[in-house]
Write a protein that binds this DNA or RNA. Structure first.
Length: 516
DNA sequence: ATTAGGG
DNA sequence: CCCTAAT
């Protein structure tokens, strides 16, 4: 062994010592235990009201329990090596005795071995947990770290009316590593997850309680190995309540996903945040769960994510969530939709006062030109109760023409290019919008074709704002730059009619630059 | 960040 | 238009 490795070992040992907390030996009294206030947060609420009385401030009065059960913690220590994230089995020894009948030796006999809970960095998590009760919760959770290695020891009640039937121990230590022991309904679950320090991952195992009553070592299941690349929310730990339903299954370690950003944001907030540059947080994968909500609710959602603290009964002692703050979502995607107010107004004008405004006239050109720049932020509420409607700005003819122009010039798919060059001055109309519009145009042209074939002229197409000429160009362009899936049928269908246009379009066609 | 595609 | 997945 060379010097270097020795040195490494030294540091490792030192580190281990640094992070080792030895519980002071506590005898039957157990009256005082340091409980930093910070670390109590998030656990208190799990306690039942009457149980809370057992605590006064940060003092745990275990005598309170004695009337029901005798809890004896002979020795409880924890060693955490943050290089290896290792929990020493010898150090973790907790025994909870009932009625004082059990001696320490007996406890040892019945100790539950939960070793080899491996999470990449966590080499071993051998622990001895002994309990006569079946509802004990033994949770070592990552606290806010930094300061406290032993953050909190709580004996909390999670169950129905008997405050001592459930025992929760919450240990907080630095590094955001988490080891949780949970037992519910006869099952003991061990979960460990690490966040900020070296290893990220989560491992959870259920221990069957049947094994607790005899001397066999604990069974455990390895839930998932740790993928060092996986990112877990730091300080995120969860013990899933175990019920018979999923007994057969491997237990589940839930990874909480960040709340997805809502795209619909309140106008007011948007205005406020307009100055902020695009700060949109990465989108979470799933946000479908919000779909049942009204848009209003969705809008309200965006504001702030308070630390999540679950208080409801569904917790039932099985679940412990360490509250963590979600990043505040600034008016996301301020990039687009910077000024909706005037556009809405315009839209209303267009849609509602059609009689005054001749939609057919091509003079509408000026329309988008002057509305594009400034947003007059009026305080008016959006659609006065018509929350169902999404932001919608009718495409003006000029816009459509610009779009067609752009497509003919740069080809289909170069939406950003088109946007840059044709819609440079428009704050709205993102490249996605262009794409969508083009798709719609294709559809329109297609239907127009079919209509033309089938019904010569049954009814005036009221919704047909786009003049036929434009649609024709769209068709031609579509033929040139086949849009992936949309209407592949149109292709050679040849648009025999409108020959006058066809020639010009064809001319244009040949002159068009070829785009891959 | 863009684009394609579904809704 | 919105949202998301895939580049």
């Amino acid at each position: 062994m060379n010097a270097a490795s020795k040195e490494t070992m030294m540091t490792s040992n030192q580190a281990t010592k640094m992070f080792t907390y030895e519980f002071p030996d506590v005898d039957s009294d157990l009256s005082i235990f340091p409980v930093p206030e910070d670390d109590v947060l998030g656990v208190e609420h799990f306690l039942e009201p009457d149980f809370n009385k057992c605590f006064s401030g940060s003092v745990l009065d275990f005598n309170t329990f004695h009337s029901h059960k005798c809890l004896g913690i002979e020795h409880f220590s924890f060693a955490v090596d943050f290089d290896q994230i290792k929990i020493d089995s010898e150090s973790l020894h907790s025994s909870l005795t009932l009625e004082g009948e059990r001696t320490k030796q007996e406890d040892h006999d019945e100790k539950l071995q939960a070793d080899d809970v491996v999470c990449s960095g966590i080499n071993k998590l051998p622990g001895t947990v002994n309990s006569r009760t079946t509802d004990d919760i033994f949770n070592l959770a990552p606290g806010s770290s930094n300061a406290s290695f032993l953050g909190n020891v709580d004996f909390g009640s999670y169950s129905q009316g008997f405050c001592t039937t459930d025992i929760g121990v919450d240990l907080s230590f630095a590094g955001g590593n988490n080891v949780g022991f949970g037992q519910k309904e006869g099952k003991l679950m061990i979960s460990s997850s690490t966040g900020s320090s070296g290893c990220s991952g989560s491992t959870t195992a259920y221990l069957d309680d049947e094994n607790m009553s005899d001397d066999r070592p604990m069974k455990r299941k390895r839930l998932s190995s740790c993928d060092s690349k996986t990112n877990f929310e730091p300080n995120l730990s969860k013990i899933i309540p175990f019920n018979e339903g999923n007994r057969g299954d491997t237990l589940v370690t839930e990874k909480r996903l960040r709340k997805p950003p809502r795209r619909y944001s309140e106008e007011s907030v948007e205005q406020k945040s307009r100055s902020n540059s695009k700060k949109s947080a990465p989108k979470a994968s799933k946000d479908k769960y919000l779909h049942s909500e009204s848009h209003k609710q969705q809008w309200q959602k965006k504001i702030k994510a308070a630390p999540i603290v679950h208080k409801d009964k569904s917790f039932n002692g099985g679940c412990i969530q360490v509250p963590f703050g979600l990043p505040i979502e600034e008016g996301h995607s301020a990039k687009k939709r910077t000024c909706w107010e005037p556009e809405e107004v315009k839209d209303n004008r267009i849609l509602c006062i059609k009689d005054k405004y001749d939609m057919e006239s091509f003079s509408a050109e000026s329309e988008d030109e002057n509305t594009e720049d400034e947003c007059v932020t009026k305080g008016n509420n959006t659609q006065k109760g018509n929350s169902r409607r999404k932001h919608h700005i009718s495409w003006t003819l000029s816009e459509v023409m610009k779009l067609v122009e752009g497509v003919s010039e740069y080809g289909v798919g170069r939406w950003t290019e088109i946007k840059r060059l044709q819609f440079a001055s428009s704050s709205h109309r993102t490249s996605v919008d262009l794409k969508d519009k083009w798709r719609n145009l294709l559809k329109a042209s297609d239907t127009q074709l079919q209509n033309r074939r089938k019904v010569v002229l049954g009814r005036k197409q009221a919704s047909q704002q786009v003049p036929e000429s434009v649609l024709c160009r769209v068709r031609e362009l579509a033929a040139i730059y086949p849009y992936p899936r949309e209407n592949k049928s149109k292709e050679s269908c040849s648009a025999p009619s409108t020959s006058s246009f066809k020639s010009t379009a064809n001319n244009m066609f040949v002159s068009l630059p070829t785009v891959m």
